[in-house]
């Protein structure tokens, strides 16, 4: 995303630049020179590992063993072959990731948007509240995982204890039954990360010109109508960005289920990243893990493109 927005003004100014002697056009290396520090990091830490991952995925790769036989596309074939022993756990993980993403993304968009709208109003204690909503985000996944694991414990947890006090069912197995485990994971993730999305929405809200609201009011628009016709369109670029990074972050969920449910019940909440980490870093089946990562990456790329088009089409339709 960041790349796209950065490029647009650059190419625009290049078009307008006068063809003066000594301009960047005559010395193409100058641009490369300025880009070099970033490119070096990009190649070493992003492009290199991606390509190495592709290479590893074509081998039976255990970095501890001297023999790393080339197996071609067999790792991929195994992951896609229902008869193989990796098929079940991997697709179970993909399914878990899918369920989590589908369940968490709507909340991670709607709740932070609502909070951003409130925080955009002027009222006493606003700054304190902004800080409070953002606070959980600064905690690490290990902290929030352990915290909620104890709070949500079926038998000795505070949540069930409090539910019992107000005569609600107090025996919900929040961490080891379905769908309660998903409710817990989604709830904890929303509680943990909503601050981040809210801050971005808030920044987006503050970028919407006041005059548009005034104009809407002059035209007789109520609160709901200004929200629909001014706020939402004004937030469109921000919403697209937040949607994409939220989908990607949700699809990469690992720590919460690793710590809170450990995949229970059975392997139901074992996500794709959980499976990949286990294969690659515990079993040292790095070939399989790399192949699985590639399948997950491709899926996410397709999804991102889809989101991009959904938002873009509507934009053009309106324009």
């Amino acid at each position: 995303m960041a790349v796209e927005t950065a490029e647009a003004p650059a190419s625009a100014s290049a078009r307008e630049a006068p063809k003066a002697p000594g301009s960047l056009r005559d010395r193409p290396f100058t641009a490369w020179l300025f880009l070099a520090p970033y490119l070096a990091l990009f190649v070493v830490f992003v492009l290199g590992p991606i390509l190495l991952g592709l290479w590893i995925s074509l081998h039976s790769w255990d970095f501890n063993l001297p023999r790393k036989p080339f197996v071609g596309i067999n790792n991929y074939k195994d992951l896609l072959d229902p008869g193989s022993v990796s098929f079940g756990p991997f697709w179970n993980g993909m399914q878990a990731t899918g369920i989590f993403t589908a369940a968490s993304v709507p909340f991670l968009l709607a709740v932070p948007l609502g909070i951003a709208l409130i925080m955009n109003e002027k009222f006493p204690g606003r700054n304190a509240l902004r800080a409070i909503y953002f606070a959980p985000y600064v905690l690490g996944v290990a902290v929030i995982g352990v915290l909620w694991r104890f709070l949500l414990d079926a038998n000795i947890g505070l949540v069930n204890f409090l539910a019992g006090l107000v005569s609600l069912p107090d025996d919900t197995a929040w961490l080891s039954s379905l769908p309660a485990a998903w409710v817990s994971l989604v709830w904890v993730t929303v509680w943990w990360t909503l601050g981040f999305n809210a801050v971005i929405f808030l920044a987006g809200l503050q970028d919407i010109p006041r005059e548009q609201y005034e104009a809407a009011r002059v035209d007789g628009a109520g609160a709901w109508q200004s929200f629909r016709n001014v706020t939402l369109p004004g937030l469109k670029p921000v919403t697209m960005f937040v949607t994409m990074i939220t989908i990607i972050a949700s699809a990469n969920m690992f720590g919460q289920s690793y710590i809170m449910t450990n995949g229970a019940p059975g392997q139901e909440t074992r996500t794709a990243i959980f499976y990949i980490a286990e294969q690659g870093l515990q079993t040292f089946e790095m070939g399989t893990a790399a192949a699985a990562s590639w399948i997950l990456t491709l899926t996410l790329m397709i999804l991102s493109v889809a989101v991009f088009f959904i938002f873009r089409d509507k934009d053009e339709a309106r324009a």
Partner: peptide, 13 residues
Amino acid sequence: SPPNVDADAQYLA
């Protein structure tokens, strides 16, 4: 035993 004993709960109990 109650059903659904979560991680470490048996020991903490």
